[in-house]
Design a binder for these strands. Structure first.
Length: 638
DNA sequence: CTGCCCGTAAACACGT
DNA sequence: GACGTGTTTACGGGCA
């Protein structure tokens, strides 16, 4: 899965999470298991009740309505919204199930069923992880929404919001999952039954991310997964209960007053939460929370549409940045590969052959060079021979832009890329800095370290030439010198992983996901078809090289998009990588191929014309000897 | 084991 | 003096 796709799938999962959040917020519930009753219908003018918060300000609402009306209005509005959301998500989920089912059936028809099953499992596991991360994201969103709470007013307790799952929980859960049944079995039980699978996944996730402050802790040994607290999302209210009452306590934001029964609660509600400034303010806050979630929901929904369109799950307008990795003929590929330089007018390979539903193409569905590229920068992914950087950045720049992930390229490669991206092929040091920070969220921190490294590389490598300019000095690239550098040999050892992970201060969530991914190896490239088709497109795909055209969208705070911690990404990728999960994308395809011992691709050459493998081993370097750009070919430095 | 690459840190010089 | 820029050295890790 490419970074872009990954983010998109995050968005998809955010839909699920947002739904839960929204439901909780809309019902004012703080506990996921406190919604057994239904509030007697309160009569509120429907015209008013139907008003969305965007149409009427809280102040106006307050003026229009009497206190009981206001309260009733909120409840009624929430109920309506709830219902609509339910229907909406039901449809969304049904469609998703349908698509996944199609994918699954397509996999059944294929001779190699196992890889697909594994792929699905990994896919699901990624979705789970995405859900968790999305929850964190939305949690932040909610917190932002609560910032506007007037001072002195009651605060909405954060424990009313879903908490981020703690790593230990995740690990334990994954242990239970993997221990309960082998991966293969779980695939058969879950992966092949997608009708229930997605819902299982959802409830699983919901259980996993439920607040750890459970009032009814599960006994040891009992898997939370098998006993999902479905009440977290269940809002069917039964008579005799109240949306704001659950688990014997008042669920009014910031209250949590214990009430023995509903009657006492109602009394408490009327006395403590009558219409006053404080309650009104809290209502306002709650409305803002709902509003934000609605907005977020709309965004996520939109992204989901685009994602599904991109994945050919449903016809829709394509997304600008994620070109489908369609099958590409060799002729097309050869043409594309001529665009080696960033400004080489990229032309994404429009499929020359009939598009095969990507659901059957593992690489297209779960495709990413980044998946196993995301690692230490010394992963030495050089674009010398097949334009990985430009294409990878072009295709995944959104990912690097927002995700705090270290780009899998050396400093030298990055610097060169930065310089070559400019029209005049020259940059000042400061401009190089800016390029780094603009393009990579990772380089928005530890500036002293990487800036020093940049300077160090500029001075050290002969390929970078300093040119005195009128306005100072600029740096250019001596392409010849650059090509003279020793062809990088891929590395991806666990030690590097460890090195990278230890170098970062993040320490949560990774182990479980890594383990999960690790347990779900799926040799996608077992199929020669994949290699010769989509893999080729990935290999030679140029994509939008005009990275700079979109970098202006970079949010300076970098927090407008759901983000994974670098370790989460990294461990996910590396976990997948370490276990042979091959995720095919642009450059990653090459290494993906190399991950397999033997296989369709020999060690000397591949089936594509003009392609030859320079290095055998885990991650060799593929060269395109026909490229006129490097007439001398890869000149290993002596 | 060695040589190389790479990242990181640091010292130092120079100019603004 | 602070800062940015540029150079250089040293060191450790990883890999072939």
């Amino acid at each position: 899965m490419s970074p872009v796709e990954l983010l998109h799938f995050q968005q998809q999962q955010a839909l699920q999470v947002a739904r839960q959040f929204l439901l909780q917020q809309a019902t004012g519930l703080s506990s996921p298991s406190s919604n057994e009753g239904k509030q007697p219908a309160v009569q509120v003018p429907v015209s008013v009740a139907m008003m969305s918060p965007q149409m009427i300000t809280p102040q106006q609402m307050q003026q229009i309505l009497s206190p009981p009306q206001l309260q009733a209005l909120l409840q009624q509005q929430q109920a309506i919204m709830l219902q609509q959301l339910q229907e909406y998500y039901k449809k969304q989920q049904e469609q998703l199930h349908l698509q996944l089912l199609t994918q699954q059936q397509a996999g059944k028809q294929q001779p190699k069923e196992q890889p697909l099953g594994n792929k699905q499992l990994a896919f699901q596991q990624q979705l789970l992880q995405m859900q968790q991360l999305q929850q964190q994201h939305l949690l932040n969103l909610q917190r932002q929404g609560l910032v506007s709470l007037p001072p002195g007013q009651g605060t909405v307790p954060l424990q009313t919001l879903p908490q981020a799952v703690c790593p230990s929980d995740l690990q334990q859960l994954w242990k239970e999952v993997t221990a309960a049944q082998p991966v293969e079995d779980s695939i058969k039980q879950e992966g092949l039954d997608l009708t229930t699978n997605t819902s299982n996944s959802t409830s699983f996730s919901a259980a996993k991310v439920s607040p750890p402050i459970s009032h009814h802790p599960l006994p040891n040994g009992q898997s939370t997964m098998h006993t999902p607290r479905r009440d977290s999302s269940s809002h069917e209210e039964t008579p005799g209960s109240h949306p704001l009452y659950g688990h014997g306590e008042c669920k009014w934001p910031g209250c949590e007053t214990l009430c023995e029964d509903l009657g006492q609660f109602v009394k408490h509600l009327n006395t403590e939460h009558a219409l006053d400034d404080r309650s009104t303010a809290q209502c306002r806050v709650q409305m803002q929370v709902v509003q934000q979630l609605e907005i977020q929901l709309a965004k996520e929904s939109e992204r989901l549409q685009a994602m599904m369109a991109h994945l050919h799950m449903r016809p829709s307008e394509p997304k600008p940045f994620s070109q489908p990795l369609n099958l590409v003929s060799s002729a097309t590929l050869s043409k594309s590969t001529s665009d080696t330089f960033p400004d080489g007018l990229p032309h994404p390979p429009t499929s020359a052959t009939a598009p095969i539903t990507p659901l059957r193409q593992g690489p297209s569905v779960i495709s990413s060079s980044t998946l196993h590229n995301v690692g230490p920068i010394r992963r030495r992914n050089s674009e010398k021979f097949c334009t990985p950087i430009s294409s990878e950045l072009a295709q995944n720049h959104e990912f690097y832009k927002n995700a705090d992930v270290r780009p899998p390229f050396t400093y030298a490669s990055l610097i060169r890329q930065a310089i070559l991206e400019t029209p005049d092929r020259q940059l000042t040091l400061n401009e190089i800095y800016n390029w780094f920070t603009r393009m990579f969220a990772y380089f928005r921190r530890n500036t002293a370290t990487w800036k020093n490294a940049v300077r160090h590389n500029l001075s050290l490598h002969k390929c970078f030439v300093r040119v005195e300019n009128v306005k100072g000095a600029v740096w250019t690239v001596d392409e010849h010198e650059y090509q003279k550098r020793r062809p990088p040999k891929m590395t991806g050892s666990p030690t590097l992983v460890k090195n990278m992970i230890s170098g970062l201060g993040y320490g949560a969530l990774n182990a479980s996901y890594q383990a999960a991914l690790a347990e779900s190896s799926f040799p996608l490239l077992n199929s020669p078809t994949m290699i010769n088709t989509s893999s080729a497109s990935g290999m030679l795909h140029v994509g939008h090289d005009d990275v700079s055209s979109t970098v202006e969208q970079v949010n300076s705070n970098g927090s407008n998009s759901p983000r994974l911690s670098p370790q989460q990404y990294r461990s996910a990728w590396l976990g997948a990588r370490g276990r042979g999960i091959v995720l095919v994308g642009v450059t990653g395809l090459l290494e993906g191929l190399g991950l397999r011992d033997g296989g369709t691709w020999g060690t000397g050459s591949c089936s594509l014309p003009h392609m030859a493998r320079d290095h055998t081993g885990m991650e060799g370097v593929w060269t395109e000897s026909f490229l006129g750009l490097h007439p001398a070919g890869p000149a290993p430095r002596g």
